[in-house]
Amino acid sequence: MNIIETRDISFSYNTKKVLTNVSLFLKQGEFLGIIGPNGAGKSTILRLICGILKPKHGIITISGHETRGIERKQLAKKIAFVPQETHFALNFTIEEIVMMGRFPYLRAFQRENKIDYEARDHALAYTDIQEFRKRPINSLSSGERQRVVLARALAQEPAILILDEPTSHLDLHHQFAIMELLKKLNKEGMSIITVNHDLNLASLYCERLVLLHQGKVFEQGSPKDLITEKIMKQVYQTEVKVIRHPHKDVPHILLNPKGE
């Protein structure tokens, strides 16, 4: 069953057309990667699916219901969004920030109840940041902060997790840790869409990929189908060598420096 479907989505910022007739789907329990060059419209499609932006044309459905008709807070109980970068203008503690994930469940002046505390503690434990829980956010490294943002998203108890380049500013250790966490979540039933610039990470972790190019779906399919020397040349204008990963049956991209 498709938990998310977009049909013929078009979107433009003022006069600049960003997406043209984008149709894609996410199956229940699937780990989908959206890839494509800079400016292909990857972040925009994520924002449209989360309801942060409204499409000019086309329909987005979640479990068969049009998102347009769903109240914002109700949608936030089903879909959690992890933005590319989070600024922390105020120095909240980690547990305060993770508790903010409970916002869709709380009315004004309503105190957090036992369920909210449990969801928060579960999210803290799952992302392995319990030891920091009382610390202010500005005392953490960017890798640790990304875990906090992920924990806040998990506290929303969503069915779908949407991430915009979750590993872009992280070192190797934190990249790996975040991707492994996502894999574990996915194994336990979470449906995931992630935008990834690192094609090798996308190839390793995503079951299926959608390749966006100039605001359109260029191709979709398994990493094996999409990550080929021919398509990389067509879309990224870059000569690459694609090999098979030594331990997994997925493609791996190697760059060829010029003149050697």
Partner: peptide
């Protein structure tokens, strides 16, 4: 008050949480 707490982490975060 809760909305303002969340907005301090950026408009995208706030919108994603349903504000």
């Amino acid at each position: 008050y809760r909305e303002l707490d969340i907005i301090s982490q950026g408009m995208e975060t706030a919108a994603g949480l349903g504000i």
